[in-house]
Design a protein around this nucleic acid. Structure first.
Lengths: 372, 372
DNA sequence: GTCCAGCGCTAAATCGAATTAGCACCGCCA
DNA sequence: TGGCGGTGCTAATTCGATTTAGCGCTGGAC
């Protein structure tokens, strides 16, 4: 009979393999699991291997999981994975680590609806995931749902007071120090402003931790060098917020700012616009430094010097920890370093008080020389 | 005895529920499944429901799946989910649709290594996923691995000649037409250039389809109005490619371009830079229109008018199709509309031949009036 | 000749649900 | 009083693996 259409494809089971090899399912199981705690003749071993190969046997992970209670599966629960463009990097890092350890990743997101969370967590637990990564896309404090208590959980980019689980977060304080050092090394000691600095209470419900720790690292390191922040201009997180905040900063009286430390690349983007509008050059008149390392940071002219939030490393670390960490997990906080991406936007402070300058294109062109 | 530490938490099974309700597991199963094809007294029904509630019973999805062969699970296989920032939107759309249909999503990516693909697909099939979404992050032709033949598969953002499965892709040709219409409506009939237009062979192995179809739609619609493309300047996909291409275009002789249709927002970003360098205003001297709608498109001054690749809708449509479509699936190509995001970068063509203009800031400031 | 040890394997139970087959009881009718 | 049909349930099997318990054979020691 000629083959017609796709074969019915009943799945090849271990009994099929055993039958073909002329052994019991038990023997086949031990051979295929590579277990040596049962004596099996070399001949039988060979026949089982051969039969499995010939039939294209693949163990049914569902059946195996039912017995072993291990699914080689992780669940990732997050608030919103895409309001932020770099969230993809977190997932990619997690995916990579999971692949290395031969696990598969369930991704879920509540879409900002906290009411959806218990349902999603239940769906994961119903499927017997080996571990759960509870992730936030902005560093903040969270309250994971009660079903997760006592489970193997790692908190990613968040802290949960009173919930016994390790956290993996960016080393924001270290990042602040690094930022300060970059500025100090370029010669800045005065006129350093934080834009969108503390960032508390900008996002419900608990506000963000990042801004606070960054500012702390920044001021500490400046203080260690006998310098200090000239001031802080709080604002939102978007380009437009940055533009307005910097425009106001320039419009107010007092000594000219020499360096701006922006909370995000987006606010830095706005800062560039405001500076250009005022006829100020980057970094000739004002240095700009920020946090995130979004892709456009390298397209700007001059390229934006920024602290690269280690999204990929965070995702990776969380999975490595949840799968490879001690049992049970210790509720420690793991801080992942935040590397500096030095581009062209930080330079030595302007010599004079150059409040206003020759407009536009010239400044941009000078910047362009410094672009990578 | 006082409770000490987390309870051992043996999972509550259906037998536990049945025992407590004083019925057999069979009865409990029928009650909890809501099946009416077996006669069960109202009293028994009540007792089972009550017992399940009291014990906090949740069915073990693994055990159920073993029996029913349905896991309420989908696998998404993609090349690289994050080289592109909008990939997250695809996933978010898929996640939303999956949630609506009470399915969970396994996400995998090869990380650009095609050798990893069979292993990942096997891992999914071993776990008995109900369906697979095979996704590419740039629209192109692909060759899914043979294990997927005969399975329930939807191709997302790609086409696979000879592989019997439906595709969900952006309506690139329609997008090209829309772009042309936007330009025609603003009064453009001459000096319309495509930048980074055809885009073939820029990515291995098969080149991209998007550029070709877009260009087709663009030229068709222009032709229908008796107009035509002034020319095409092929280049890469990045900001810097766009900047160089446009700079060259402006430096060459001939009539000045009046409108640039850029292949991506990134090239448009570069185009803005090149135009500013040449002292040309957007849209006063040159209109700019592009494809993608990345977030920075709205931060530029003027805001970039762009065709929003419907990533979210694509992800949603793929899941809706693979779960809700006919059995078996018809190998059709579903084209998802690409909406225009009109911002400030398209305006009426310049009256004269204004080759060079007053530099920088003025142009930007005019643009800014049009920003949303 | 018997006993024991070791070898190489198999039978059967298990995981937790879904599902098929069929049984005990009741009341009604002849 | 015996049969019959409907009601309301249960026992047993199945899904496909893992894992425990133990069986039959052989060869050597005594």
């Amino acid at each position: 009979m000629p083959t017609a259409g796709p074969p019915p494809r009943r799945r090849v089971t271990m009994s099929d393999v055993a039958r073909r090899a002329g052994v019991s399912a038990t023997t086949a199981s031990f051979v295929l699991a590579g277990r040596t705690d049962m004596r099996i003749s070399e001949a039988a071993r060979q026949r089982v291997q051969e039969a499995a190969r010939a039939l294209g046997y693949r163990p049914n992970a569902i059946a195996r999981s039912l017995r072993t209670r291990s699914t080689r599966t992780i669940g990732l629960v997050s608030d919103t994975i895409t309001t932020t463009p770099y969230a993809g990097e977190v997932i990619r890092g997690a995916l990579e680590a999971a692949r290395d350890r031969e696990h598969l990743l369930f991704i879920t997101e509540t879409g900002g609806d906290p009411g959806a969370e218990p349902g999603l967590v239940d769906a994961l637990l119903d499927r017997d995931v080996d571990a759960v990564i509870y992730a936030a896309m902005y560093t903040r404090t969270v309250a994971p749902p009660p079903q997760l208590r006592g489970r193997r959980v790692v908190l990613l980019n968040c802290l949960a007071p009173g919930f016994c689980a390790p956290s993996v977060v960016p080393d924001e304080r270290g990042a602040g120090r690094t930022a300060a050092r970059a500025l100090l090394e370029a010669g800045h000691r005065e006129g350093v402003w934080a834009v969108g600095g503390r960032g508390l209470a900008h996002r419900p419900p608990d506000g963000l931790l990042a801004g606070h720790d960054r500012l702390r690292g920044l001021t500490e390191e400046l203080a260690a060098a006998g310098a200090a922040l000239a001031g802080t201009s709080e604002c939102g997180w978007e380009a437009d917020d940055g533009r307005r905040a910097v425009a106001e900063l320039l419009a107010r009286g007092g000594p000219a700012p020499r360096a701006l430390v922006c909370a995000t690349d987006r606010t830095a983007f706005g800062a560039y616009q405001a500076l250009a509008d005022a006829g100020l050059r980057v970094p000739g008149d004002v240095s700009v430094l920020s946090f995130d390392d979004q892709d456009f940071a390298s397209w700007l002219r001059p390229g934006l010097t920024t602290l690269a939030l280690p999204h990929h490393a965070l995702g990776r670390a969380a999975v490595d920890l949840v799968l490879g960490g001690p049992r049970p997990l210790a509720p420690e906080v793991h801080r992942v370093p935040v590397p500096l991406r030095a581009r062209g936007s930080v330079g030595p402070p302007a010599a004079g008080g150059g409040r206003v300058h020759s407009p536009g294109a010239d400044g941009e062109r000078q910047g362009r020389e410094r672009t990578t």
